[in-house]
């Protein structure tokens, strides 16, 4: 049975992906809240008693938590004689009304929406390459109409929640592009899914009064998270691997002109520095 790791898997889109994939995959979910994870696991078991699913608890905003959980997952897979990882879905994300930082002093939307996935992918990449697997980021249409603010990527000088969110989602596509530029030859593929407007609680969790209010109204018009989950399954299961980068409703979609190899390289360098890692020195 192929194994898949999903971050932000206890609620929203991540949970629906876990639920859908648990029919055919060994699913490893990561969530921040122990109770929510236990509840999610219970729900999936109640529908499918034969499901293979395990949850790990980690607050991926903090880099040391990413490193810890990556190590725990590797050990867990080894102990269960699973020697490769077919899929990694970097889905965990947040919205913050105010400028807030991680323990490292990194702005939280950038830290969770981009850096956490960047570091987790690095830790698990040798296992993914073994499986010639696929890496999928949860992106957003909102990545368009913005450039990366290279001289102030944490937006300390001019923080705006929407700008920070949009920028982090542009980072997701740049990261996927950078991964494909570097590792397609090793047999892996990276994608970004635009889930569309989905009825989740992303704007209601520690987001702040105004974002909370706006999101509560806006999400009423969103679709159920089961719908975008199918696109993730499509990208994992279609063979040969789809050649595109950015998908919505199982179809390729156009993305921002900012998504160039030059910007992807620049983001790679910066993210490597901020995470204290180097993809070039990865032993696969």
């Amino acid at each position: 049975m192929k194994a898949v790791v999903i971050t932000g898997a206890s609620s929203g889109i991540g949970f629906e992906i876990a639920r859908l994939l648990s029919k055919n995959y060994f699913v490893i979910g990561i969530g921040r809240n122990e109770n929510n994870c236990a509840h999610a696991k219970e729900l999936i078991y109640s529908e499918n008693p034969g499901a293979k699913i395990e949850y790990f608890i980690a607050d991926l905003v903090q880099q040391k938590e990413v490193n810890r959980v990556a190590y725990e997952i590797q050990t867990y897979l080894e102990n269960n004689d699973i020697l490769e990882l077919y899929g990694l879905i970097n889905n965990a994300g947040c919205v913050r009304s105010w400028y807030t930082t991680s323990e490292e002093g990194y702005e939280q939307q950038f830290a969770l929406n981009h850096l956490a996935g960047f570091l987790l992918t690095y830790r698990l990449l040798p296992l993914i390459i073994k499986a010639k697997g696929r890496i999928i980021m949860t992106g957003s249409q909102s990545h368009k109409g913005i450039k990366i603010c290279w001289d102030d990527i944490m937006l300390r000088k001019r923080y705006n929640p929407l700008t920070a969110y949009k920028q982090s989602k542009l980072c997701n596509i740049l990261f996927a592009k950078g991964l494909n530029d570097r590792f397609t030859s090793a047999g892996i593929r990276a994608y970004v899914v635009d889930p569309g407007l989905v009825r989740t609680d992303i704007g209601n969790k520690q987001a702040g009064f105004l974002v909370n209010l706006i999101w509560s109204i806006r999400k009423k018009y969103g679709v159920s998270p089961e719908i975008p989950a199918k696109t993730y399954e499509f990208l994992l299961e279609t063979n040969p691997a789809p050649k595109g980068l950015y998908y919505c409703s199982c179809n390729e979609k156009t993305y921002s002109r900012q998504v160039t190899s030059e910007n992807a390289d620049r983001l790679f360098l910066l993210s490597e520095k901020l995470s204290g890692i180097s993809y070039d020195r990865l032993e696969c």
């Binding site: 903090q62 880099q63 040391k64 991680s102 323990e103 490292e104 002093g105 990194y106 944490m154 520095k273 901020l274 204290g276």
Partner: peptide, 13 residues
């Protein structure tokens, strides 16, 4: 622990 994470983050930025 928080202090060490912060020091690391500062030196990287």
């Amino acid at each position: 622990a928080g202090l060490l994470s912060l020091k690391q983050g500062l030196e990287r930025q």
